[in-house]
Each structure stands twice: as structure tokens, then as C-alpha cells.
Design a protein around this nucleic acid. Structure first.
Length: 419
RNA sequence: GUGGAUGUAGCUCAGUCGGUAGAGCAAUGGAUUGUGGUUCCAUGGGUCGAGGGUUCAAAUCCCUUCAUUCACCCCA
């Protein structure tokens, strides 16, 4: 019986690993271009780190276990609690604001489906200890630049901006405080269900017809001016102004085509308190590519100081699906500079020649067994090598080698020093 | 946890009314013993997911089970 990889996990054969490294490298290069520093935490944490924030029911969605000392642990389903924990521990000596990133491997015990696995990677970028909207602007700018670096553009994706604060304040003006949590859940489903069902679900929560109409027109707003017209006696001024400022900034930087007001974005239930955003593909055929927002209380809730953070995560699985759909996965394989083809045996002479070339900083590959030249040529092409060096050729004078460029098929005699 | 779809060669998939298994690609060898992605020829490769049932006969029909996948629930 052959073993398969466990449900919801992937085997990264070199073909796929190459793509994965491409994704990681664009992620990390973008973070570095923005000056963020990399950090990392443990792959497992105390179970309580997650239950404290989200309640016991989250245990169903976690890979959790007891270690040999009887401690309850869980494989991390997200990195932000670890980040908060790490920041809290060293807060006195850290220089705020922090701009940190990480590429954690994460684990969630749930049914796998398109764009969603049990083991995956996610880039996290966070700013901690900054209340300025520039933090939001910086992160949104980073996610746009990063996606563009993959070859995507404003026809492929957009950033939907919303505000938990605005939605909360709007709802507070419409409906009783104790209903807000339930209403959030319904709002979150709005995109997937019919309008009638949406209205019915709100009616079932004893929301008045007037309030339902008001909620619908609020959520349908696609521009800030629409939003301003429906303000309830100035209650929402600050939250709207905040969004307006963020839009203005990002538009002036040059991201107009990428931005969209989308108040249907709620992002989970707790955790976020201010601006929230999601990146989605224009076809809307995939789940969200990235998502994030501002969290004011997370660090304090985990026993630290009151520090405001903003962050987002972007997973590798949906991004991969999108890049594949758009034909943007890298095809060219990274290969060595030289593949040595020998007319004689693969022996110590060949290996020491390879060693000399590597000493000159070249990436060098050679056949591991003495096989026909024809077959060696195939191996050379297969390896993605730029050039072939013919070793043991009687057509080249001493200290010189026949070199063939595999792309142009041109062949020349080159002195060792010019290799 | 619920519902649908799919399991046949390394990969992508055909397989009609039930009659003991096919193609393309890939692999290997040759045409071509010192030069690669083309071409031609040949060769190898199968527990038809597994188990049971019906039948003279099952990849095909029935039952069970496992796996994969999509959607729902959930989505940090």
C-alpha cells in the first residue's frame, strides 16, 4: 500500500517547490523594499493562546495535542497571537512602531476545498504601535505592489476597503446594542445569499423594516459621497472622514484603479476595530486573496500594553490558484551555468575540473554516470543549464574548451580563464 | 458534520448493449558509437481504488467501504 500525503497537505516536488520559492521570494523582497523586518515564532503554542481570544469552540478547528508533560498545545492556525505574545514580552525594549513580517506555515483542522488546505503558508505584515492612517496606507500599498510584482494588475484584482468602526457606529444608531453581534453574522453572508433571504434573516432578528432598508442602502454604497449623504445626524463623521483620508492618500500615490469601497467586508467577528480590507480577484471566482485591518485591543487582551496594530495576511493557496489562472506561474527553471559533457569517463579529472569552475563562482553540473553524449545533452537541456562544456575534446587546444550555448546553439572554443 | 461529483498506465483521459484493457503525452531502446527540445520505428508499463454480490462472463449492474474533489457549515 502506497502512502499518500495527509488530507489537506501538499508534497512540494521540485516543480512545485520552484513555484513556491518564487512566491516566497516576491513576498519577502516586497517586505524588504518597504523596510519591514522578518521574525518567526514557534510552530506550536499553548492552546490557551488561541482559546483565550476565540473561545473553546475554536478547538474543533485546531490541531491540538498534549505533550509528554501533559501540556495542552496547538499547531498555530494563525501567527498574530504569537506576534502579540512576542511583542508583549519585549515591549519595554522594543522601538515602536514596529514594522515586521513573517511567512509562517499554518495549520487548520477543517475540510479542504478549492483555495483552502489544512497546511498552508501565509505572509503576514504588521505595524504595531502606530495609530496613524499612514500605517494602513503603507500596508495596502505593499500588498498592491507585491501583487503587481507577480505580474497582476488592476484588471485582475482590487482592494476592497471597509471600516469596522463605521459599520459598528452605523448599526448602533439603527438597532439595539445586543443585536449587533448577530447582525454582523448576517451582514457577512450578504454576498452569498439572495436579497430576500438576507432581509428575512434580519426580520427574524426583529429588525424593523425601516432599519433593514437603511442597512441595505448603507451596504450598497460604493462611493464616499453616497455614504456622506446618508449620515445619521453626524454620528458617522469621524469614521467616514477616516476612510476618506485613506482613499485620498492612496489615490494620490497612484492606486486609484485598485481601490473600491466595499462595506460588505466585515472580516470575522472580533479582533478588528478600525479600517478593514480584503483583496479579491475581479472575477470573484476565488475566495479572498488577502485580508487585514486595524486591531486596537488585541495586545492588551493578551495581557500587554494598549498598543494599536494594523496588519494583513496573504495565503499561498489562493494566490497560487490566481497566478495559475492568469498564466503567471514561472516557467523558466533555474539551472546551472554549465553542464559538463564528457567524451570520456566520469572520473576524478572531471570532478576536479568542475571544482575549479565552482572555484570561479560558477554553478556546475555534470553527469553522474558515463553515458552517451547524446544522452548527456538531453540531461543538460533537462537541467536548465545555460551552456555545455565539452570535456576531453580533441578539437580544443590545451587550456581551452568547446562551449555550446544551449539557447543559441552556437559553439565556440574558449580559454579556461574566460569561462 | 451535511450534500454532490469522480476513482482505469507515471500524467490527462477513452472504454458503446456486461463478452478478460485502449489512446495521447511521458519513459526506455533504436534509426544516429562526438552534440539537445523536431521526425520515424520499436519496447516496457494495469490488483480497472478496495471488499462483497448478481451472472456462463463484470472496468461496466447492485451493495458496502476507502480515497480524491467541489459546495454548504466555518473561515482567525
Amino acid at each position: 500500500m502506497a502512502f499518500k500525503s495527509p488530507k489537506g497537505t501538499r508534497d512540494f516536488y521540485p516543480n512545485l517547490m520552484r513555484v513556491q520559492n518564487h512566491i516566497f521570494s516576491i513576498w519577502k523582497n516586497t517586505c524588504k523594499a518597504f523596510g519591514y523586518e522578518e521574525y518567526e515564532g514557534p510552530v506550536f503554542e499553548q492552546l490557551e493562546l488561541y482559546t483565550q481570544k476565540s473561545g473553546e469552540e475554536i478547538v474543533e478547528q485546531l490541531y491540538c495535542f498534549k505533550d509528554k508533560g501533559g501540556r495542552d498545545l496547538a499547531l498555530r492556525p494563525e501567527l498574530t497571537p504569537s506576534l502579540a505574545r512576542m511583542v508583549n514580552l519585549k515591549a519595554p525594549e522594543l522601538k515602536f512602531p514596529l514594522r515586521w513580517f513573517a511567512v509562517p506555515r499554518l495549520y487548520r483542522y477543517e475540510r479542504a476545498q478549492k483555495g483552502r488546505l489544512r497546511e498552508f503558508y501565509q505572509l503576514n505584515m504588521d505595524i504595531i504601535g502606530c495609530t496613524s492612517l499612514t500605517a494602513e496606507a503603507d500596508l495596502i500599498s505593499a500588498v498592491i505592489e507585491m501583487l503587481c510584482a507577480f505580474g497582476l494588475n488592476d484588471k485582475d484584482f482590487a482592494v476592497g476597503l471597509s471600516s469596522r468602526r463605521l459599520i459598528r457606529e452605523f448599526l448602533a444608531a439603527q438597532i439595539p446594542e445586543d443585536k449587533i453581534g448577530q447582525v454582523y453574522r448576517v451582514l457577512d453572508k450578504r454576498g452569498k445569499i439572495t436579497e430576500d433571504l438576507f432581509n428575512k434573516m434580519l426580520t427574524d432578528l426583529s429588525i424593523s423594516q425601516g432599519a433593514i432598508e437603511s442597512i441595505n442602502s448603507f451596504l450598497n454604497a460604493t462611493t464616499l459621497s453616497e455614504l456622506k449623504q446618508m449620515q445619521c445626524g453626524g454620528l458617522l463623521d469621524d469614521a467616514v472622514t477616516e476612510l476618506e483620508e485613506l482613499f485620498n492618500t492612496l489615490e494620490r500615490v497612484g492606486y486609484t484603479g485598485y481601490l473600491q469601497l466595499d462595506l460588505s467586508i466585515i472580516r470575522g467577528l472580533d479582533y478588528y476595530t478600525g479600517v478593514v480590507f480584503e483583496v479579491f480577484d475581479r472575477n470573484k471566482s476565488l475566495r479572498a486573496i488577502a485580508g487585514g485591518g486595524r486591531y486596537d485591543n488585541l495586545l492588551a487582551n493578551l495581557g500587554g500594553k494598549q498598543l494599536s496594530g494594523v496588519g494583513f495576511g496573504i495565503g499561498d493557496v489562493v494566490l497560487y490558484e490566481l497566478l495559475k489562472e492568469k498564466g503567471l506561474l514561472p516557467e523558466k527553471i533555474y539551472g546551472p551555468d554549465y553542464f559538463i559533457v564528457t567524451f570520456g569517463d566520469v572520473d576524478a579529472d572531471l570532478l576536479s575540473f568542475a571544482r575549479a569552475l565552482r572555484g570561479r563562482g560558477k554553478k556546475v553540473l555534470y553527469p553522474l554516470e558515463s553515458v552517451k553524449v547524446k544522452k548527456q545533452m538531453s540531461q543538460a537541456v533537462e537541467s536548465g543549464a545555460d551552456k555545455v562544456i565539452f570535456f576531453g575534446s580533441d578539437k580544443a587546444p590545451a587550456g581551452h574548451f568547446e562551449v555550446k550555448n544551449l539557447e543559441t546553439r552556437e559553439q565556440a572554443i574558449v580559454a579556461f580563464d574566460d569561462l
